[in-house]
Simulated assay, not measured.
Amino acid sequence: MSQFSLKMDIADNRFYTGKTSAVFSLSESRKARAFHSQLKGYEPTPLYQLSALANLIGVRSILIKDESKRFGLNAFKMLGGAYAIVRLLCEKYDLDLANCSFEKLKASIGQKMTFATTTDGNHGRGVAWAAQQLGQNAVVYMPRGSAQERVEHIRTLGAVCEVTDMNYDDTVRMTMQKAQEKGWVIVQDTAWEGYTKIPTWIMQGYGTMADEAVSQIAQAGSGAPTHVFLQCGVGAMAAGVLGCLVDAYGANTLHSVLVEPELADCLYRSGIKGEAVNVGGTMATIMAGLACGEPNPLGWPLLRDCVHQFISCQDKVAALGMRVLGNPLGNDPRIISGESGAVGLGVLAAVHYHPQREELMQKLKLNADSVVLLLSTEGDTDVKHYREVVWEGRYPMAE
């Protein structure tokens, strides 16, 4: 068997308490899913079992949810943006969320609104999609280095989209300032002082993925997951999903691991210190959706209390995950997963091929009884880059 060593720094969480959250929970995730299920074109994204790969790696089962099938948008992010916009409008016009639809909301809006956000691609596309469905305007800003294809996806939905010369976190601050000047509504998946309600709704919206997975796992009879690997930017998705999962399976039973690029590993550093740590600089990682340097303060307490380990890894780990998912073993399904979506699977593969495989398996508490849950949160949202990695061998395992 080939062996190669990819950089993966694994930190145990010394501040783990197992304390769960009433805000990010199974019940809130079910409320979000009930709304999403009313939308035209809704269906749960598939949860695949990678039996041949699980056998190779030495675990009982690998389960992976494929979010490239979400509403034709090739990523999960619309779940949060759309849910937050609808919650905002229901509150504004005194409508019942349980009996609300895009059509009813569209008819209720008196004066046209503009929704503004910062994005690395997928969140902005989701906000633009929701605004289009509701007949409203959207303005989207992206950090420097953003892929032109992701820009065009947003513009195709009728939104104004501009790329700045700043990193993600500085672009968020600029968006906030412009929105205040122009009277736009900010729909951002991180929070700051005085801005918590909308990001809370966004994070709760992400819980739909987790609630679907809980139902699908029960229906499949594959056994409850023992592990979940969640990729992180600001930690909004991770907290929204993990809150539901620890409610369903128990924080002490589900071994949860957060994975970040080493160039934007704010949560890894926060996990070591026990308090939120910001990371600055260009954060030029291929995992564009995770290139965020400041933890979401709403999600951080839950992650601090319920995550067992934090991983900071090099970009090659994500590239490996993309290749493995796109070139499956045996009868395993082929999954087209983008850079941010594939990094969790990349960690499993990198552990398998590592010279210290056994030590890493023990450290992550992986064994023949493990059932590992992963979320492939995006497809090939940047097709050119996907093919450079998977077809042309960019970011090779050995150089």
Rank of each mutant, 00 (worst) to 15 (best):
K112P: 01
E181M: 14
D96V: 06
T118W: 02
P297T: 12
S21E: 03
R387P: 00
E378K: 01
E181R: 14
V371N: 07
I154T: 09
L302W: 08
G158S: 14
G58D: 04
L360G: 05
Q314H: 14
Q111L: 08
I57K: 06
E152M: 13
G341I: 04
F35M: 07
G271W: 05
R14G: 10
E152T: 15
Y83H: 10
K92R: 15
A131R: 07
G81H: 07
D369M: 08
Q362H: 11
N122G: 10
S29T: 14
I186Y: 00
F115E: 01
A22P: 06
S51H: 08
S108V: 05
N167M: 12
F102R: 00
P199V: 02
A213H: 08
L258I: 13
L26G: 05
L95S: 06
V390H: 05
K92W: 00
A11Y: 02
E152F: 10
F71H: 11
V160I: 08
L50F: 04
T118K: 06
T190P: 08
Q356A: 13
P396D: 06
H123S: 12
L325F: 11
R387S: 12
L374Q: 05
Y168E: 01
E358H: 08
M142E: 07
R387Y: 10
T20P: 01
G121F: 05
K77E: 13
S61I: 01
K182P: 02
R173D: 12
R357Y: 10
A398R: 13
I186D: 08
V127M: 11
C232W: 03
S256W: 08
A318I: 12
A218F: 11
M176T: 13
M361K: 14
Q356W: 05
D165H: 11
L88S: 10
A291N: 08
Y195V: 10
E275W: 09
H308A: 08
G221L: 04
L258R: 00
S25P: 13
L254Q: 10
Q180F: 04
H255V: 00
A238T: 03
Y83L: 06
P301I: 01
G18T: 07
N327D: 13
I109D: 07
Y168V: 02
E359V: 12
Y206G: 05
E193L: 12
N167Q: 08
D9E: 14
I57M: 05
E149C: 03
G280D: 07
Q3P: 02
G341V: 07
Q362M: 10
L320G: 04
D265T: 04
F24N: 09
K19I: 06
S37R: 15
S370M: 12
T156P: 00
A368C: 12
E152S: 14
S51P: 00
E149A: 15
E378W: 00
Q111P: 02
M176N: 14
L298M: 08
Y386F: 15
P199M: 01
P301M: 06
A238S: 13
L26R: 12
P328Y: 07
N122W: 10
D211C: 05
E67D: 11
G240C: 05
G330P: 01
D9M: 06
